[in-house]
Computed example of a mutant assay.
Amino acid sequence: MKWNSAAAVFGLVAPTHALLRFGCSQLTIQRLDPLVTPGQNPSPHLHQIIGGNSFNVSMDFPSHDLVKLSTCTTCQFTEDLSNYWTAVLFFRARNGTFKRVPQLAQAGMEGTKGGMVVYYMSDALFDTAQRSSVTAFKPGFRMLVGEASYKDREQARDFRQLTYTCMENQASRSPETVGFPKTPCKLGIMANHRFPTCWDGVNLDSPNHRDHVAYPETGTFESGGKCPSTHPVKIPQILLETVWDTSQFNRKEDWPEDGSQPFVWSNGDSKGFGNHADYVFGWKDNALQKAMDAHTYVSAPMLRTQSISEQNKCTVRNMVNENFDGWLKELPGGNPIF
């Protein structure tokens, strides 16, 4: 199945929908997960994190208020002190060793240290009247999309639009696949994480970090799908794009002898169906709601922007003492391949 995304339309047609699109450099890469395994140091697998520098081993709200505790953010808009994170991509060589795949900045964001591109959409695609309205997330809101343990396509159907793009160049946005691309990608592999867009209107979180949010009854946010009665509040569509620079690993003689693709997530997933991402809301005051209500396209004049060099300066201390660079005999944490 093929989906159209905000990214697929960006730059190819006249603006017909409202969205924020901005870059966030890498805050840190550590084996921590304050959402799924709070307080556990180290957590089971490695993550790459962007956003506010109050990221920590535990981030329980209200004791951990990202807005109050963060002094900087790696994101372009300084009002966004949220944290976003995904697993880390590794290359598995024919001899069984592993090497972390670096991240690549998108066109127009050159100089960004790692990180991702973030989208917040307030309108369905091609809703030229911009009749849609969304309710911005509240302090303490958090959610998870995807399941790290999923091993096949049938399981992955639980989540819509967690996909990959095999990029020939910076303009590549299609086709999208649910599993890892099976052939070498000239530029790299883009991982696309689209979060649910309907909220129950009550709970800021749930035990599995998923039940308080839902997808539209039919279709997608982009197609204007209606929220189910159990989750009636329409929230912004968050899309994360991470470009993994796989170009240095394209020599077929380095790939497995059986011709299978050689990339694995840091949790051990070699098929790509365990794709997942985490989000902890941390926008200042009502800045996000103002931006969504303005129905602007890409830019947001009501928000303060910072330079890429300023984004790159924002970091956090290393809380896990382990090496994950160079050639490794096993994935960090010793996660088995599945």
Rank of each mutant, 00 (worst) to 15 (best):
S149Q: 14
G23W: 01
Q170R: 05
M116R: 01
S133K: 08
Q103Y: 04
N275H: 15
P42G: 09
K151L: 14
N321P: 02
G51W: 15
K151P: 00
S122H: 01
A14L: 14
A18F: 06
P256R: 10
S172E: 10
L125I: 14
D269L: 08
A93P: 00
Y84D: 03
L20T: 05
A14M: 11
F221Y: 14
L35R: 11
S299N: 13
F263K: 07
W327M: 14
G146H: 10
E241A: 01
D285W: 14
V57F: 05
F91L: 08
T230M: 10
A87N: 11
Q48R: 03
A287R: 14
F137W: 15
Y297I: 07
F338G: 10
R100W: 02
Q106P: 00
F55Y: 15
M143Q: 13
A14V: 12
T305W: 02
L331N: 10
T16L: 07
T28C: 08
V9L: 14
S5M: 09
Q30W: 06
T16R: 10
V134R: 15
P44L: 13
D211R: 12
A107K: 15
L81G: 02
F61D: 09
P301D: 08
L12I: 00
G52I: 00
R131F: 07
R317M: 04
V117C: 01
P216Y: 00
Q130F: 11
I189V: 14
N192P: 04
V117F: 00
S172W: 13
Y84Q: 06
C72V: 01
S25C: 00
A18M: 07
C72M: 06
N267C: 13
T97W: 06
T16N: 11
D278S: 13
R131L: 12
S229M: 09
G23V: 01
V36R: 06
T71G: 15
Y164N: 03
G274L: 05
N169Y: 06
E217W: 02
N83R: 12
R304L: 02
A300G: 07
G224T: 09
G23D: 03
A171N: 11
P34H: 12
G268C: 08
V88K: 01
T74I: 02
F137D: 01
D158N: 15
E330D: 11
H276E: 09
K252E: 08
E310F: 01
D278E: 15
Q261V: 05
G179H: 12
G52S: 11
G96L: 10
S82A: 11
Q106L: 13
D80H: 02
S309P: 05
N286S: 13
T177K: 09
F10R: 09
V202H: 04
S270T: 10
S149H: 13
G111E: 04
C185Y: 12
Q103N: 03
C166R: 05
M59L: 14
F195A: 06
D152V: 05
V280Y: 08
K290I: 09
R21E: 12
Q30Y: 07
K234Y: 08
G52F: 03
I337G: 03
N53M: 05
Q40W: 01
P207L: 12
I29R: 14
C166V: 10
P228L: 11
H64Y: 08
M121Y: 04
R142A: 14
P15A: 08
T305P: 00
M109A: 01
S270I: 04
F90R: 06
N312Q: 05
Y150I: 10
L125V: 08
H212G: 07
V101T: 10
Q103D: 00
A6W: 02
V243D: 06
W85S: 09
